[in-house]
Amino acid sequence: MRQAFTLAVALVIAGGLLASSVDAQPQLKNKTYHFGTHPARTNITFVSEADLETIHGYTNKVQGSIKVDANGTKASGTLRVGVGSLKTGIDLRDEHLRSDQWLDAKRYPYVQLQLVSATETQDPRKWSYVANLTIKGVTRQIKGTARISAIPDRLGKSLGGGSWVRVRTKFDVKITDYGVKIPQQVGPKVSDTWSVGIDLYGTTAAPSR
C-alpha cells in the first residue's frame, strides 16, 4: 500500500515536471516578435578566420519579424540585413565588401534569411530550424539550432514596450557558394567560410515607422 502511494506521488511529480518542461516558455505562444527595433540589442556578427588575420564584421541593423504559432512550438518569419550596413572595422574593406566582386550591394542590397520551418526541440529553449539564406541573389538552404529565451515580462519592462525574446544562433556560410569570387591577392586575408552569429532581441511592440 505504502509502495503504491509512493509510486503514485512519484508519477504525479514526474508528470508535472514533464508538463512544465514541454511548456516551459508559454509566453511565446501566438506572438509576433519584431527585430531590429533597438540597435544596441541587435548583433549580427560574421567572422573570417584566415592565415593573415581574423576579420570581425558586424551590423546592428536588421529588419523583420518572427511569428510563433498558437501552441508556441513552431515559428515562421523573415529577417533582412542591408549589405550597406555591414562593417569590418576598415572603411576601404567595407567598400570592397559592397563592390560587385563581393556582395554587390547595388544589385543585391539585402541579405535575407527566411524561415522554412522552426520547431521547438525537447529542450524548449532550443529550436531547430531550416531557412533559406539569400546572398547576392543566390538562395541556399541552411539548418541549425537557435537558442530562444523568452524574457519574463517583469524583467522585460526595463527593455521597453512589449513582450521580449532573445534569439541566438550560429551557422557557417561558404561565400563562394553564393557567387562571391575571392580575388587571388586577398587569398591569405579572407577565408571562404564565414562564421555568422545572430543575437537579436525581439519585441511584440510594433516598430515605429
Binding site: 548583433n43 570581425h56 558586424y58 541566438r168 562564421s195 552569429g197 543575437d199
Partner: peptide
C-alpha cells in the same frame, strides 16, 4: 552571452 554576442570561435 550576458554581456554581448561573441565574435569568432
Amino acid at each position: 552571452a550576458i554581456y554581448g554576442s561573441k565574435s569568432g570561435s
